[in-house]
Each structure stands twice: as structure tokens, then as C-alpha cells.
Design a protein around this nucleic acid. Structure first.
Lengths: 174, 174
DNA sequence: TCCATTTACTTCGAGTGACTAAGTAACATT
DNA sequence: AATGTTACTTAGTCACTCGAAGTAAATGGA
């Protein structure tokens, strides 16, 4: 859960809605859309959202280890172990001991895992990309500039810069 | 979990990074920032992120009932019951039977709850709002327009239009 | 070489958050 | 008064998460 709230700046009565609010509302809609999409996607794929994300990371990463997944997703190694367990049980991935360093495990996609990833309903993603690419050049540029500006305002940490929008489960505070 | 990925459009080699990717990366940074903020906030407040969100809803809503919370957060009534239980146990809120309709419970903030909300580290929110309001008028307008456009592209569902950015836990697919 | 340390991962135990289904209590309708 | 509806809680179950403790392999001296 996250909640950004407006600061306590008083609106003049009759002020319809100031831009700060408008921007926060739009941001909220964006987060909400991605959240709902995550649920939908996971449901249709027969996987939970988090499990699906693991599958994506595995697919993206060569010689993917639990530590890789842990770093990419921002969860503990213990959590990764249990997530991978579930994916193994479902035949989506399997573990292979790494040859170079036998402490490491490589998490490897199975065909079933590939299939699950590929047939996932990527409605949101497709819609977004399609619409984005339908825009005029200058509009795209404007949008990117705005997004980057907002990201900077939120002071997002440095991330691996893969073109993946990723909203992991974030309950850390237990 | 959510993952927006780029569609399978081939980049020409040497193409540094197209705008679709850039926009997705920026979006990801935004989601990630909000996610991390949620964790941080929850940790410092001694509440989990979801519990904190309940507190916010209670604070915002007059005569707040479990059903209100359920609707605002998009979780089941049973979940609300258990969340409120925890907040009650911590002395953040208490239950009062409604006078008009004695089936309803009103969830009411305690002073401790108010304090927890007010002293919450709202670093992200403050930073965002401060920076937003420091921008020039036309820049604000531009940003709002971009955000709203993106929200529309993602086709976010209709939401209560409160100026609250809210990213609830979204595991529904169990 | 051998022992201590570090690294990589798993296991264990426990808490939160989420759901559905079934239950209780109060209001509403007939 | 009987029936239905609404509001909420209880009970049971499962997923995700963590920290702490454990195992196994590599590494780095002495």
C-alpha cells in the first residue's frame, strides 16, 4: 500500500481542483490500473502476481540465481526460495546447480514456464504500447519528458534500467 | 506484482533507446518509488502499509464503516475486519456501534491513531508536492496533461476521485 | 594444507494479508 | 410475525514475507 496525499495547503473556496490534486489523482489512476492488471494477469495465468514476476525475471536473466531474483524483486532470499519452490512444483522452472560455482543454483525456465509467460494476457501492456506508439513524435517526446520528470520528483532509486514496469508486492514492514 | 513489458518490436541495432522503452522505464521508476515509500512509511509508523492505508481512509471518512473501507480499498469485508482488529489491538482506532443503524459499526480514530498518521514520515508526498508546486504554471499544466493521458492509456477504471495516490496490496488471485 | 570466513542458498517458525463460506444481529418488507 | 436483506464477524485456508539458524561450497590466509 502506498498513499500519497496532498499537503495541507488550503484551497480557496470555489477553487475547483488545483493541479497538485489533479496530478496526484492521475498518478493514483496509473498505479491502480497497474495493480488491477497485475491481478487479472496472474489470475488468467494460473499464477499469483508475485510468482509471475519471478517467471519474468527468470526469463530475462541468463543464468538466473535466487540472489538475482532477490535483488531484482527486492525480497529476501528466503522468500525467493519459497516462490521458486512453488514454481518448481507447478513445473514452470527447475533448479540446476551451477557448474562454475556449485553453491549457486540456476533457475531455468521449462517449456511450460515459457508457455505460461507467452500466453499471459498482456492486455495492459499491449494497450499501453500500442497507444504510445500511435502518438505523434512530439507527443511521445513530451510524455517521456513528463514521466521522467515525475520519476525524478519522486526520487526513485536507481534501478536496473530494463524496460519493465514492475510493481512488486511490497510488504516488508513486518 | 505487475509487469509491463515492451512489445516485441525489434529495435534496430544501435538504436539507443526508443521512447516506448523510455516511457516504460520512467513509469517503472514511479511505481518503484511509491512502493519503496510505502515500505518506509509503514516501518517508521509501526504499522504495515495496509494498516496505514486503513488509518488514512478512516481519517478521511466521516462515520467510517467497514463497508466504506472495503469499497475504498478494494478488499473484502472479512479482510477489513481483520485489519481493523489489528488497529484496535494497537489502540489506533476503536469500534462504535452506529446509532442510526445498529448493524453498522463506525470505525473511529483514537488520539494515538491521529498521532500515528500525523507523525508518519511523508517524505515522498512532501517532496512530490513541494516540487510540483515549485514548478512554473505551464509546467504543471503540462505534467497534469501528460499524467492524465497516461492514465487514460492504461485505461484505469473509474475511481473515487480523491487526491490520494494509493497502491493497495493487490493479491487477489489466490 | 588446513582452518576460518564468506557466500549462496534452504529450512523453520511465525506474522500479515487475502479470500470464501457460514454465522449473527439488526433493519425492512410483506 | 415471517421472510428477506444488509452489515459485519468468525472460521478456515492459502500466499507472501521475514529473520534466524542451518548446510554446503568457495576463498583466503597461516
Amino acid at each position: 500500500m502506498l498513499a500519497l496525499q496532498r499537503s495541507n495547503i488550503e484551497d480557496f473556496p470555489g477553487n475547483p481542483m488545483d493541479r497538485t490534486d489533479a496530478s496526484l489523482i492521475a498518478l493514483r489512476r496509473i498505479l491502480r490500473a497497474t495493480e488491477l492488471y497485475g491481478r487479472e494477469l496472474a489470475q488468467a495465468a494460473g499464477l499469483t502476481a508475485v510468482q509471475f514476476r519471478v517467471l519474468q525475471v527468470v526469463a530475462e536473466t541468463r543464468y538466473c540465481t535466487p540472489t538475482d531474483i532477490s535483488n531484482r524483486m527486492g525480497v529476501s532470499l528466503a522468500t525467493v526460495t519459497s516462490l521458486v519452490d512453488k514454481l518448481v512444483k507447478q513445473g514452470m522452472v527447475h533448479r540446476e546447480r551451477a557448474k562454475i560455482d556449485r553453491r549457486q543454483m540456476n533457475i531455468v525456465m521449462t517449456e511450460k514456464g515459457e508457455a505460461a509467460l507467452n500466453t499471459a494476457p498482456d492486455a495492459l501492456q499491449q494497450r499501453y504500447v500500442r497507444r504510445f506508439e500511435a502518438m505523434k513524435d512530439w507527443e511521445q517526446a513530451q510524455l517521456v519528458s513528463s514521466l521522467e520528470r515525475i520519476a525524478a520528483m519522486l526520487d526513485a532509486e536507481d534501478l536496473d534500467a530494463s524496460p519493465v514496469l514492475d510493481m512488486g508486492d511490497f510488504r516488508k514492514s513486518q
